[in-house]
Simulated assay, not measured.
Amino acid sequence: MTGGLFVSFEGIDGSGKSTQARLLADALRAEGYEVVLTREPGGSPGAEEIRALVLQGDPDRWSAETELLLFTAARRDHLERTIRPALAAGKIVICDRFADSTRMYQGLSRGNLRAKVDALHDLMIGVEPDLTLLVDMDPSEGLKRAKARKTAEERFEDFGLELQQRMRDGFLDLAREYAARFRVIDGARTPETVAQDIRAALHGRLP
């Protein structure tokens, strides 16, 4: 998977990461780069079908173990059909969530499954982004923003503020664990200011 650049966005629900992923994609396209803006779960036809299964319905619909298998299946299809071909063609892939979200949601926040998450990731995925941008946000503000969207995909948001706080702490721990690829961005500012910091984080990394 050489020739392109793989950038992921992470953060708690409502942090603004999806907006920032879109803004970055638009800015890079305006500069002449070929960009694939994608998301997880999803990003390929099969993975989008799994997305509908895991993000809708009752919060207790799936166990953390079942979710882990579903998310990994979606990620594998996404990798095969979208990410790998784009990177091989020298494009920039910008992904709204990747494996770090699974390390948090299923590996930490819904059970002590981190070892299983990493083992399955190594076996079936084996890829990490070149750069991960963690948009950090106060959990109460993030949850308020997320609830205001009023979308059908609210299953994880329905777990409440406690999960959001554990997620934020966990993401910051991941940023320390994988310090070489993570950059933490303060999301509690105007979208324009956040976007400027994100653009600066890409300095020297663009193909």
Rank of each mutant, 00 (worst) to 15 (best):
A115W: 01
D58N: 14
W62C: 08
F182W: 01
H203K: 15
V54M: 07
K150Y: 00
L131P: 00
D122F: 01
G46C: 12
I198N: 05
P85I: 14
G142M: 02
R155V: 09
L161S: 01
L87K: 04
T102A: 07
E154L: 04
L68M: 14
S63D: 11
E128M: 14
H203A: 15
I185D: 05
L133F: 04
I198H: 06
A180D: 15
T19W: 07
M137C: 15
G90W: 08
P41L: 13
L120W: 05
R22P: 00
L37W: 09
V127H: 03
L79S: 08
G46V: 15
I12R: 07
D169R: 14
L161Y: 01
E162K: 12
T82S: 12
D96W: 09
L28H: 03
A88M: 08
I83P: 02
F9C: 11
T82H: 02
G32P: 09
R183S: 12
L143H: 02
K147A: 10
D197H: 14
L161I: 15
G42C: 04
L161R: 02
I94W: 04
K17N: 11
I12F: 04
G90N: 07
R166F: 00
V93K: 07
D13W: 01
T72H: 07
I185C: 10
I198V: 15
I92Y: 04
D186H: 13
W62K: 06
I83W: 03
E153T: 06
G204D: 03
S101W: 03
R84T: 14
A52F: 05
H121N: 02
Q20C: 10
T102P: 01
E40V: 12
G107E: 00
R149N: 06
R22S: 12
L108P: 00
V184W: 05
T2D: 08
S44Q: 09
M167E: 09
L87Q: 05
E48Q: 11
S109H: 00
Y33L: 12
E157I: 13
L123Y: 05
E192H: 12
A99D: 09
A47E: 06
G46W: 09
G14Q: 10
A73H: 02
P59Q: 08
L37C: 13
A21D: 03
W62Q: 02
Y178W: 12
A74M: 09
L37E: 14
P207C: 02
A99S: 13
G57S: 10
F98Y: 14
P85C: 10
R81Y: 01
L174K: 11
T102R: 03
I12N: 11
D77Q: 15
R61E: 05
S63P: 01
T19H: 06
F98K: 03
D122I: 05
A64D: 04
L70E: 04
P129S: 07
T38Q: 06
T2S: 13
L172T: 06
E34I: 10
H121M: 02
L174V: 14
R84E: 08
L28M: 04
A86M: 11
A25K: 12
S18C: 10
G160L: 08
I94F: 05
I12H: 03
K17Y: 05
E153V: 04
G46T: 13
A86V: 13
R176V: 14
L24R: 12
R76K: 13
R97N: 10
D96T: 08
V54G: 06
K91S: 10
